[in-house]
């Protein structure tokens, strides 16, 4: 690694947000194309502003790349290497919980999400993770469903409790 490369600032990750924002702005403009002027006005103004800002930023990045001050690395986007695996498993568990909640219901989803996350993040021994997750799930059930009666999807646990009470 040359000295110059080591000193350059990785900006690859910094581009994700402006690029996404610009894409959304373009999609937005497309989506209002046939609408009455009042419905278009603010969106098109904003899209123009956003695209202008992003263009300026891209110019800044390109100049930086050209002069060697910037590089296209992803830098610290994913955080420290040693905990990356745990954290990505945690994120996947989050997505899994979203998919499962209509079937498992609130309580079981919360319990399984908590228990599996604790385990994935390294809580040992297992029984401790399960215990804390169970307490979390039950307290959540008591507060949100039993006391406040919110309309969460019902799963086996909620239906069982309903049948019992």
């Amino acid at each position: 690694m040359t000295e110059k490369q080591a000193a350059s600032k990785p900006v690859g990750a910094d581009l994700i947000l402006p690029v996404c924002a610009a894409l959304y702005a373009l999609y937005y403009v497309w989506s209002v194309w046939d609408f009455p002027a009042e419905a278009q006005f603010s969106g098109i103004m904003l899209a123009g502003l956003l695209l202008l800002l992003v263009t300026i930023y891209l110019i800044r990045v390109l100049r930086g790349l050209a002069s060697g001050r910037y590089s296209m690395g992803f830098g610290d986007l994913f955080g420290p290497r040693e905990s990356r695996r745990n954290r990505s498993v945690f994120f996947c568990l989050m997505l899994a919980a979203l998919v499962l909640v209509p079937w498992l219901g609130f309580t079981l989803t919360t319990f399984s999400f908590l228990a599996s996350s604790f385990i994935a993040l390294g809580v040992r021994p297992f029984w401790r993770a399960v215990q804390i997750a169970a307490v979390g799930g039950l307290v959540g059930w008591f507060f949100f469903i039993f006391l406040l009666g919110t309309h969460f999807p019902k799963g086996p646990f909620e239906l069982l409790v309903e049948a019992l009470i």
């Binding site: 799963g155 086996p156 646990f157 069982l160 309903e162 049948a163």
Partner: peptide, 13 residues
């Protein structure tokens, strides 16, 4: 046991 009971109740309700 609880899970089994719960699953048994689920479709019948």
């Amino acid at each position: 046991a609880i899970a089994a009971m719960a699953l048994a109740t689920y479709p019948s309700v």
